[in-house]
Design a protein around this nucleic acid. Structure first.
Length: 416
RNA sequence: GUGGACGUAGCUCAGCUGGUAGAGCACCCGGUUGUGGUCCGGGAUGUCGCGGGUUCGAGCCCCGUCGUUCACCCCA
């Protein structure tokens, strides 16, 4: 009985040839600017103690309350597949005492994250993010640099049709003052049950409602940006000054809301113009109380997460990324058994010297093998038969031009 | 979790008011002896998502289910 086909779990993003190459390009280049800015790799588990997220990200958030993949392991511990990266980094920094050394701690990460949401264009249950965190420095200059690094990542993969939105959520005092007035304002609105419930846990969320009637209702709502105290306002002005100096264009969006509760002060979001409803390709901000909340010392921090899947979608939408497959330097077509042995050794030798070499295996006719070589896009082809082995010379064919030249087998490395 | 659309060969899709399936691309073989891309000839391929129902008969109609997709909530 033939086995039943098994398909991938719902809503996961996977990348197979030939698109996987574009994915790899995006993932590596998005984070490249961070490495050049002195950020170091931090490699963490994809699952963590559930409490890390309930305490760190915030129980009131949708991410924690209804989108986490949580299960019990065999020892009865509650485990959760990470829905975001910052909390895990904080945990590791505290656990390994990185915060006891030189500050700021600057790390980057790349990997998959999990959220049990209904899949949609650009939204997956397993998705990829790259990100950085800079911990232990309360200087607006680093806010600007973090934003600039994210921006450089998008530019590195060729994106241009996106905008950067920034705002400041201020410090605790500023937010408390604003909240009083905002709650008062909201109490004058007539809300449906779900919305009212959301307003209760975090009234700021109402700013993000896409429904027309809600946008109208919130049009006159008091804005947090107008409640910033002296210190918060100064800090935000500094950030803008540095961004201007860096020549990074941005728009102020005082109605911007982020989905995780730990954000404070500077927050930002990159929004792409060609994507559908899920147009946020990256975002981040300051989280000055998070470390302490997770049992560490009281250190501030700032970071970002960039969506690799969405950045790839954006690059494809802009037409700035090719789907060209990997091409080998040489394709060897052996004819006969002794040639096959020789081809294996030649290929192995050339590869140790950094050349990419493929071999036509099997018993395809020469014509078929040539076709395969052509399809593979290999730069050059060599047919290896009895006469070549005895003479030690092959005809090296340059596929694009069709030109051939006689080359000693021992000199293939130089000829390529 | 809520709503809409869609599920036919590996891929993109066609299939008229119900009569047991087709195209293009891709793939394989060949067009005389060991050199690809074009052209020509030939070939393989589907439990028409799955399960029920209506009917003499269903890819086409009805119900359910699973999946995909787009949007809402939310977010990368």
């Amino acid at each position: 009985m033939p086995g039943q086909k098994i398909s991938a779990p719902k809503g996961v993003s996977e990348y197979v040839p030939s698109r996987s190459r574009a994915f790899e390009f995006v993932r590596e280049n998005l984070i490249a600017p961070a490495k050049r800015a002195g950020y170091q790799l931090i490699e963490l588990p994809v699952f963590e103690d559930t409490e890390l997220f309930t305490r760190g990200v915030g129980e009131s958030t949708d991410v924690v309350s209804k989108e986490m993949y949580t299960f019990e392991d065999r020892g009865g511990r509650s485990i959760t597949l990470r829905p975001e990266g910052t909390a895990g980094v904080m945990r590791a920094v505290i656990e390994h005492g990185l915060d006891r050394g030189q500050l700021p701690v600057k790390v980057w990460y790349s990997g998959q994250f999990f959220r049990a949401e209904r899949p949609q264009a650009g939204r997956y249950r397993q998705f990829y993010q790259v990100g950085i965190e800079a911990i232990g420095l309360d200087d607006p200059a680093i806010d600007a640099e973090v934003i600039a690094i994210a921006d450089a990542g998008f530019k590195a993969i060729g994106l241009s049709k996106y905008r950067l939105e920034i705002t400041s959520l201020g410090d605790a005092e500023s937010r408390a003052a604003h909240r009083v007035d905002l709650v008062e304002f909201i109490s004058t609105l007539r809300l449906d049950e779900a919305t009212a419930a959301r307003a209760l846990v975090n009234p700021l969320r109402l700013f993000d409602d896409k429904r027309e009637e809600m946008r109208k209702a919130m049009a006159d709502a008091p804005l947090l940006i107008n409640y910033l105290n002296e210190a918060s306002r100064l800090q935000f002005e500094q950030v803008q000054k540095y961004l201007n100096a860096l020549g990074i264009s941005y728009v102020l969006n005082p109605r911007m809301v982020r989905g995780l509760d730990y954000y404070t002060g500077t927050t930002f979001e990159f929004v792409h113009e060609l994507l559908g409803a899920q147009s946020g390709i990256g975002g981040g901000g300051r989280y000055d109380g998070l470390m302490e909340q997770l049992g560490g010392q009281s250190l501030s921090g700032i970071g970002f997460g960039l969506g690799v899947d969405r950045a790839l979608l954006a690059a494809e939408a802009e037409g700035v990324i090719g789907n060209d497959a990997f091409v080998s330097d040489l394709f060897i077509i052996p004819l006969g058994e002794s040639a096959r042995v020789k081809a294996l050794t030649i290929a192995a030798d050339l590869r140790t010297h950094g050349k990419s070499v493929e071999i036509a295996f099997g018993d395809r006719a020469l014509k078929g093998a040539m076709k395969g070589a052509d399809k593979s896009g290999a730069k050059c082809v060599v047919v290896l038969g009895e006469s070549e082995i005895s003479s030690g010379t092959v005809e090296l064919k340059e596929m694009k031009s069709g030109h051939t030249s006689s080359v000693k087998i021992d000199s293939l490395l130089e000829a390529l």
